[in-house]
């Protein structure tokens, strides 16, 4: 073993790797000519990309992240955008991007095929973002845990204040999760601001944990780590389909919903292809792909059939959710700091 050994072998290893990277990059180097930022579940993203590539022959480079992460990325990249289209994910960050001028206006020729709520989203954002699916807020409970504790099935928001459910309800922290912010806004819209905050204060006693991620309570409910979880109903459905002892309920007082959205990124390098994706993603043909890939949201194209497992929107009492007001950053900041001050720091 010569003394030369370490440096020599290290640099040899580094060199070898760099060369192999060089060789490998040749094949991976072909840049797609559409960059899609996708913020739904991986399978759904892949299903969409495959179908689009097959149909148009356009090569797609897809990045999947959570919608909050992606919004942060698009904002950071604003000086020199890397993505062309942002597809999927809850509407609030899309609306915020529209508000901050990160997105491009566009009118698709097939707007007339869309449900009203989708078109309203588009109008409220001044043509900068459009709804591609909707998911209703609701609650899910672990049937085994509930039976073991002998508690009646909760059916309404009010039922969650049952003292027997002390430390048994889980919901995300609205500061970190769009899901939970939707719930905050929903409660305020159903009950009015003062009563709504009274409700949230009472609910605080029963909340065992404010999770960081919006869908986390669904997982915790499936494992029995909590008895009741508040999430979007389709998040619960994913576990029900998987065989978890969960029952999902849309609250009797009515409930809010999210509009999964799609946005053209301002300054996109492949704007023409991005528009092709935009138009295609609104068609019925593209919108059934979600249901085929274990995502159970309700599509925005009237001609697209909702997957059979999806929560039946006709059976759910939907409130007239004001996305323009509650999606604006000023109102959100105000409500969130009020929640921080009045609810989160209450003693139990």
């Amino acid at each position: 073993m010569t003394q030369f050994g370490i440096i020599g072998r290290l640099s040899l290893a580094a060199f070898g790797l760099a060369v192999s990277a060089l060789a490998g990059a040749g094949s991976a180097g072909a840049q797609g000519n559409l960059v899609v930022y996708c913020t739904v579940q991986e399978e759904w993203c892949r299903g969409m990309v495959d179908a689009f590539e097959k149909k148009t022959g356009i090569k797609v480079a897809m990045t999947r992240k959570s919608s909050g992460e992606l919004y942060a990325q698009i904002k950071a990249e604003a000086a020199n955008p890397r993505g062309d289209i942002w597809w999927g994910g809850t509407g609030d960050p899309h609306l915020q991007a529209a508000e901050e001028g990160l997105s491009e206006e566009y009118t698709s020729p097939i707007m007339n095929q869309l449900h009203d709520w989708s078109v309203r989203q588009w109008e409220q954002s001044k043509k900068r973002t459009v709804g591609i699916y909707a998911g209703a807020l609701g609650l899910g409970f672990n049937t085994k845990q509930l039976a073991a504790k002998g508690i009646a099935e909760p059916k309404c928001w009010a039922d969650l204040l049952n003292p027997k459910l002390k430390d048994e309800v889980q919901v995300a922290d609205p500061n970190s999760s769009g899901t939970s912010y939707t719930m905050l806004a929903t409660v305020v819209q159903i009950m009015g601001e003062d009563k709504g905050f009274d409700y949230l204060k009472s609910l605080h006693r029963n909340v065992n944990q404010y999770t960081k991620s919006g869908a986390a309570p669904a997982k915790a409910t499936s494992l029995g780590e909590t008895t009741v979880g508040i999430t979007f109903l389709h998040d619960m459905v994913t576990y029900i389909v998987d065989g978890a002892p969960i029952k999902a309920v849309a609250p009797c007082e009515g409930t809010g919903y999210e509009i999964g959205s799609m946005t053209l990124i301002k300054g996109a390098r492949n704007m023409e292809n991005a528009k092709k994706w935009y138009d295609w993603a609104l068609t019925a043909e593209a919108q059934v792909i979600g249901g085929q890939n274990k995502s159970y949201q309700v599509p925005s194209n009237k001609g697209a059939k909702a997957p059979p497992q999806a929560p039946d929107f006709t059976q759910i009492k939907m409130i007239n959710y004001d996305f323009a007001k509650y999606g604006s950053s000023a109102e959100r900041t105000r409500l969130l700091s009020k929640w921080d001050k009045d609810v989160k720091n209450l003693p139990k």
Binding site: G68, Y181, Q209, K212, R332
Partner: peptide, 18 residues
């Protein structure tokens, strides 16, 4: 409910408050 700086920072950036 035990919050630390690192998660708080993460969600200050990617969370609903942006």
């Amino acid at each position: 409910n035990f919050e630390v700086l690192s998660t708080k920072i993460f969600f200050a950036v990617v969370g609903a408050s942006h």
